Simulated scan of single mutants.
Amino acid sequence: MSDDVAVLGVGMHPWGKWGRRFTEYGVVAARAALADAGIDWRAVQSVVGAETVRGGYPGYVAGASIAQALGWQGARVTSVYAACASGAQAIGTARAQILAGLADVVLVVGADAAPKGFFAPAGGDRPDDPDWLRFRVLGATNPAYFGLYARRRIAVHGDTPEDFAQVKVKNAAAGSLNPNARYRARVSAEDVARSPVVADPLRLLDICATSDGAAALVLSGLDFAHSHGVSEPVRIRAVSTVTPRYPRTELDLPDIATDSAAAAAPPGLGLRPSIAAAAYEEAGTGPEDLDVAEVYDLSTALELQWYEDLGLCPAGDGAKLLREGATSLGGRIPVNPSGGLASFGEAVPAQAIAQVCELTWQLRGRAGDRQVAGASCGISVNQGLFGHGSAVIAVR
């Protein structure tokens, strides 16, 4: 398709807590991606940096900060901020530049040096931001929000804490096979059950950590890829960057409507289902075409919700799909073969790029012991504060 762009190279800095500046991680990932692509840094015509607001001024101008750290050579620079969706929107920006003919080769980088503990709201008071209102008016930090979400799944769909624990067990097993993951130990359901309660019913091992890390991609037009000797590159076929649609302006919750005759469900899709739907429409594909998925598992219960929002199963059947083994390595549609945020933790501007790195390795058939056999189509999805929703569909 004419709107495809090629993934020439991918690279990562392993996730962890290293105590260094985000640019150091970004340079490691960028150089790895350039080496993978066989591209000299001086041939890169544009750098798109996913921002990290916790990095101070260098983080706000992440594109230029990474370009400076690599050695200024005149490349166009762009910096993109969309909270947890920053990396996917950086990919969308790079893709647009390539398709517009503004650059043949674009380097996309996201890197973060995350603090320990909860992320503090940044940018001052934001009374028009539903997420800020949740933090400050309701006092619902992310773990409390995840706990409420899990409670809703228990009440509406009959999920159990044991189901949530199995998501962690699955992702930890995959992460144990990933050299870039921060947590590489397998865990059991008993390990999850013994971990401290954070926001009932979720325990410590149900919720992802905060991490340092970086990921990078080298993207190009297909003509450039072919001239560079890559005859069948992994291609990005769709990038969805959506916001909620009025009147469905809640950012994350499914319909709360009951069976009461007085309850009327608003029209249209909620935000989370619309993220994947927009990508499917652009790519001319659907959930039945997927071989692998990388989803934004801030908590174990949220991963189950993604199964449904991606159309992998009917609403309410996420836990059933998990129990059947369909989303495990070797299953019908493996989800988070990288190990997900359960194994990596959050390095906010890097994680959506890292998802596409994993899709690329899977579609190339180079994912090692976590390889999904015969993978030819994959999706990554995530969402960020203030209504940012993003998805990427990659094909081979």
Results as ranks from 00 to 15, higher is better:
Ala173Ser: 06
Ala209Lys: 01
Asp259Val: 09
Ala185Phe: 12
Arg235Val: 07
Asp255Tyr: 02
Pro244Leu: 13
Arg235Cys: 06
Arg194Ser: 09
Phe224Cys: 02
Ala144Tyr: 14
Thr258Arg: 07
Ala199Trp: 02
Val234Cys: 06
Ala150Cys: 15
Leu204Arg: 02
Lys170Leu: 05
Pro161Ile: 10
Ser260Met: 11
Ser211Asn: 14
Ala173Gly: 02
Gly270Ala: 15
Ala283Pro: 05
Ala263Phe: 13
Ile256Val: 14
Ala263Leu: 08
Leu219Phe: 02
Pro179Cys: 03
Asp223Asn: 07
Leu177Ile: 11
Glu250Cys: 09
Ala257Gly: 05
Ile236Phe: 08
Ala199Glu: 05
Phe224Trp: 11
Ala257Asp: 05
Pro267Lys: 02
Phe146Leu: 09
Val198Phe: 00
Pro287Lys: 05
Pro179Gln: 07
Glu232Val: 09
Asp200Leu: 04
Arg152Asp: 11
Tyr246Asp: 12
Thr241Asp: 05
Val242Gly: 00
Val197Gln: 07
Asn171Arg: 03
Lys170Gln: 05
Val156Tyr: 00
Thr285Asn: 02
Leu222Trp: 00
Lys168Cys: 04
Tyr145Thr: 04
Lys170Glu: 06
Lys170Gly: 04
Asp163Ser: 00
Gly286Ala: 04
Ala185Glu: 14
Val197Cys: 13
Phe164Thr: 11
Leu204Thr: 01
Gly158Pro: 07
Glu190Ile: 01
Phe146Ile: 14
Pro196Gln: 08
Arg248Ala: 10
Ala279Pro: 14
Ala262Ile: 07
Asn180Leu: 08
Ala214Phe: 13
Ala283Thr: 13
Thr243Asn: 12
Pro267Gly: 05
Arg151Val: 12
Gly270His: 13
